[in-house]
Every structure is written in C-alpha cells, then in structure tokens.
Design a protein around this nucleic acid. Structure first.
Lengths: 336, 336
DNA sequence: AAAGTTACCGGAAACGTTTCTGAAAACGTT
DNA sequence: AACGTTTTCAGAAACGTTTCCGGTAACTTT
C-alpha cells in the first residue's frame, strides 16, 4: 500500500508541511483561502491523515479498548453496541478484544491495547487472578478504566453493574411465592462480586420468608454448562423443585435436558433465567428471566470513561448500579 | 500514562538506542552477553516496545482487521474465533469492527482500519453498494483482502463461502420428500450472492422433482424480521405448508408467531432454518437446520489472508467453498 | 607483522504527523 | 514615515522505533 502523505501535498502546493497540518486541524492562524486550497488538493490526491503518526506525537490515539470475556451470549455484543454509540459520537474509535474466558489472554489483550496507546479501557473480567494487580498498576498510572458487569472488588475505578442483589432477591421471592421451597441456586464463579451479590439476594429472600436456603452449584455461563449440571442432577436423583439459573443460556441448556428426561416445566421443575436473551420469549415453555439493560450498560460505561477523559487528573471513581426487570413467563408459574 | 522507552534503557546502560533495538529484534550482530544485559534491564524497568512507533517506520502493523455486519447472531462471533486462533499463532493481533448492517458504517470501518495500517482485511459485507468500488481500489493498491460469507461478486479477491446452492437444494429436497409442495423461500437481500445461490438450489430442487416453485420473500437475518413476516403471512391468510428460512433467528421468530396463532409445527407448517445456531436443538419443536462450519470458515479466511501476506506481490485470488450438513429435527418431519 | 575478516556497536536518517519558535508581510496608528 | 500589531506562514524539533552506514576492535590468515 502506498499512502499519500502531508509532505506530498506540501510539495505539490509549495507550502510547508506545518501549513498543511494547520489546514487540517482547523487552526486559527491560517488564511481561509489557503486552507481551502490545501483541502481541495488533498481530497484530489486522496489524502487521509495517518492516525499512527498522530498517535506518536500526540501520545494519544482516540481509540478506546473494550475487553470482554466471551462472544457466545448476545449479552456482551449488546453492551458493546451501546458503548459504541456513545463513543462514536465523540469521535472515538472502538477496538474490541475477546478473552475467551481466560485470565491470561485477558491480560495479553489489555497489554496490547495499552501498548497501542488506547486512551481508555472498558473491561469485563474473565475471572479474578493476576489480572487485578495489573489493573491496579494501570490505575496508578492514571490510565482511564471502567469495569462493567464482571467487576473487581477492590480496585479504585469506575464501575457499572447490574443490581444483582435486588433482582436475585426478587427472582427468588417470585419462586417462593409460587410455593416452591426447594430452590437450587446456580451461581457463576465464586470470586465474582456478581455471584456474591446474587447469593446474598437469594439468601435474604429465604430469610424473609423463613425458609431454609437450598443448595448452590457453581457454573459457567454457557449452554453446555447448563446441560452438564442438569444431567448430573438427574443422574444423582437430586432434582430440585425450582432453579434460579446463572443466565439464560444455562437455563435453556437445563430445560432441554429436563424435557428430554420427561420432566414437565414448570409442573415438575420451575426455572428462572438471568440476563434475559432474545430466546427467552421464543422457546417453550417461555422462560422467566431477569432482564438487564445491556445497551444502557454499554452507554453508561462509555459515559463514565468519557468523563475521565475530559477531566483528566482529578477523578473520583464512580459506581453506577443499573436496575432491571423480572419478566415472568411460563417456566416458573404454576396455575393453582 | 508515562511509557518507558528504548532511549531510557539506552541511557541507563550507556549504549546506543540502535543496540537496544537490536537486542529486542533478535538480530545477529549483537553480543549475546550485552543482549542479555539489555533484556534484563528492560524488564526491570518495565519496558514494552511501542507498536505505534514500529508501525510508522515499518509501514506495517501486525494487525488484521475483521469487519462484520452484525453481532446479534452467534454466527459471526464464531467465525471471528476461528480466525483469531490462526492469526494469533502467527503473531497477528485482531481488530474487530462491526458495521451494524450499514454500508456507510462499513466503509468508515474499513477506512479506519486501513488508516491504522492493518496488514490485511477480512470482510463480510453489510450489503452491496458503494463499498465495492472502494474495495476494488484497495485490491488495486495491493491491500490483502479476504471476503467471507457475504461476499461481493465481481471483485478479484480471495473468498471463503458456504456451499449455499447445494444445501439450499438439499434442504428444499428434504421438504419435498416430506410431501410438501408449497414451500416458501425466505431469502436474504437479493444482491448477495449467497441469496442467489440459495435461490438456484431451491429452484433446481423443484425442477428435479417437477414441482412448480413456491413464493419468495426477502428478509433480514434477525429474529424480528422473522416475526414480522410470519405475522404478515397470517394476517393475509397466506400461510404456506413449509418454509425454508434465511437463518435460524428468522426461523425461530416465525415459529414463535405461528405457535402463538395456534399453528402446529410441523403438522400445520414445517420449518427449516439455515446456519444452525445452538438454539436449534434446544427449542421445541427442535429445528431442522443447515449447519455451517463457522469456526472453519474463520480459519480458512485467516489462512487465505496469511498466504497473501507471505507471498506478497504475486497472488492469485482463491475461493474456498465449505461444505455443511443438514440436521434434520422435529420441525420438518411428519411421521406418516 | 601486515593485511584482510569478522563481530559488535554507535550515529543518524527515516516513518508522518503536531507543535513550538520566530520571521516576513500586511495592516493600523500616530 | 516610523513604529507597533496582527496575520500568516516556514522551519525545525519531537514522538519511539527500525535500519542503513560506517567505524573500531578483535581475530584470522599469510
């Protein structure tokens, strides 16, 4: 590839490169007339400014990095789209990297993005481990950082999360109201705050209604995980009356297994999902699920980051807690 | 952010910057001993090479850009993961951009990536329009390009596609074998080759069995599109006996509407999806669908690109056609 | 011991921008 | 007409690398 540079234009027009640069950067000290002349010639020659060179001298990139743990569920893509909308408006480009649920890859991704001089980072953790010390380091170096969804506990950075406590509470209470006493809680990895909050919600709902809490099983967020757990429950003859699943993918995987094994949903076993996907309303029975404002989560994260980018220097970390909704559908309701 | 540079190390060790550079680039003319000394000091100081500066002087980035039209279906994420696997192995970083099914945004994305000196581009089209002249231009300028899935017709570039003709043919024939004569064909946008090939497969299957072809409706690839079309068919009292859908999302959207309106699947209406998603096996009735090797598609695209990157200069565009499979499930089978 | 090789390293140019400094030209003021 | 201002621009340094060129020192060869 041959690129047209600012020098080519300068030579063509017999002006200095600095003049051409000024023409493009809308600087005050340039005659409108020559500015037009330069812009015209530049577009004739098909010139496009080289962002790489600009990054180098300005020490900033107008790029924002987004790191997500997985691509399987539509959750993260939706968050990204929300963030993109805001960032595009402010002339930032978005670089997306995916960590495949691996902490090591996540660190590698983060370093790559930092090396590429992103102006800020929006991150959802793949897990908790030696990535956290690195993020500590980044915050100390004043790299603008925003975590979302799967956030670290002890890092002083802006975060946007879902109110997992509250909605785990409501979802559990909903199941209790249906008369179920033996409610299995499928949790994400234990080290995520998200899991702890849901656990608290689940526990407190039981306390409120003076019911002993049921079992808890840790689980990933994929359909495969759900399938595996369900098969396990059945083979051990350990099927509960109701389940609060880690997410929809997990719930749908379980439903499939239960249905195949002759269980009726919700008559034999009731199920509630989390972070609702499009599928919830389309499978049968339709799946009760906690709906999260994914798009808004992305938007909020982007906005928090923009704030940091604007008032650089002083910056008080902020945590935004987003509200949701429980969409009650067939999978958890028994008509009595 | 303050970055440690090659100069800092040079100063610290009283060597020239060129020497430090050599130490990192594994060049022959450096004494192993000083090389060690430099590497040690560098890691002590937390030095990381600045890829931006390197890009500028080398006029290459070791970055590959991937542009996809949408994030809703898991299809593209899976392709990306396949491509990533190959590209990572060859030390390329992957930059992902998403065009939101907009041709204008797609062009903008492509230009951004080119400006950022990606070494190559892997693209799936959002549509056909004034993006194509731009890609023509890029190929003339020798920018390595690989299209996949939604590919342009008349551009001399490497492509990897699915054998849409063959599997549309088989899927249609499968429906014909079930005894259905009135088969509605839900197609993607008309200007995509993919759509044309499927159309041909659909037509030829009818010809082979001497059945007049049914209707065709154009449609997007989202669940919403499916819902809308199904509602339309019902309201116009125009429901066919069987449907070959544009993809699974579309099929699932339709199934939902039909079920809600009292249609039995497959007794009243049979449905076959395309580019199978995880959901196909999990909804009820389970959905017959054409399975595409998404992961392999990404791998193949990456490999074609790598070939171009290696033998730069001479390069004969190549088209890889991937095979698939028809997974027959409940939604299309009537027991007779 | 002189000449030729080789191994190693320093210096400087280059990549394409932005930005700082300063100077020429144009203008206004008295 | 002399001076001060403002406008407009040119030149050069800088960003952090790689790479080319050349030079010294050590080692071979005769």
């Amino acid at each position: 590839m041959k690129y047209v540079t600012i020098k080519d234009i300068a030579k063509e027009l017999n002006v200095a490169v600095s003049t051409v640069s000024r023409a493009f950067n809308d600087k005050y000290d340039i005659k409108p007339e020559t500015r037009e002349r330069i812009l015209k010639k530049a577009s004739e020659m098909g010139y496009r400014p080289n962002p790489i060179a600009r990054k180098l001298v300005q020490q900033r990139s107008y790029n924002i990095g987004i790191i997500i743990p997985e691509f399987e569920n539509s959750f993260f893509p939706q968050v990204i789209m929300g963030a993109q909308e805001i960032l595009y408006q402010h002339n930032y480009q978005v670089l997306i990297m995916q960590s495949n649920e691996s902490i090591d890859l996540e660190i590698r991704n983060a370093k790559t993005l930092v090396d590429n001089m992103v102006d800020g980072l929006i991150i959802s953790l793949s897990g908790v481990g030696n990535n956290l010390p690195y993020y500590e380091e980044l915050t100390e170096k004043k790299m603008p950082l925003v975590f979302f969804n799967r956030v670290p506990e002890n890092i002083e950075a802006s975060k946007v999360v879902f109110d997992d406590y509250k909605w785990a509470f409501f979802a559990t209470e909903h199941l209790i109201h249906q008369g179920f006493k033996d409610i299995l809680f499928i949790s994400g990895a234990d080290d995520l705050i998200l899991s702890k909050n849901r656990q608290r919600g689940y526990d407190d709902a039981h306390k409120k209604h003076r019911i002993p809490t049921g079992k808890k099983i840790n689980c990933g967020f994929s359909m495969k995980d759900g399938v595996q757990i369900a098969e396990n429950l059945i083979s051990k003859n350990n099927v509960p009356r109701a389940i609060l699943a880690a997410n929809d993918a997990c719930a749908i995987g379980m439903m499939r297994v239960f249905k195949d094994s002759g269980f009726k949903i919700p008559e034999d076993i009731a199920i509630v999902g989390f972070s609702e996907t499009k599928m919830a309303a389309h499978i049968s029975p339709t799946l009760t699920s906690v709906e999260q404002p994914t798009y808004e989560m992305g938007k909020a994260a982007a906005q928090l980051l923009l704030e940091q980018l604007q008032n650089k220097g002083i910056h008080i970390p902020q945590t935004i807690v987003l509200n949701g909704r429980l969409n009650v559908r067939e999978s958890s309701v028994v008509l009595s």
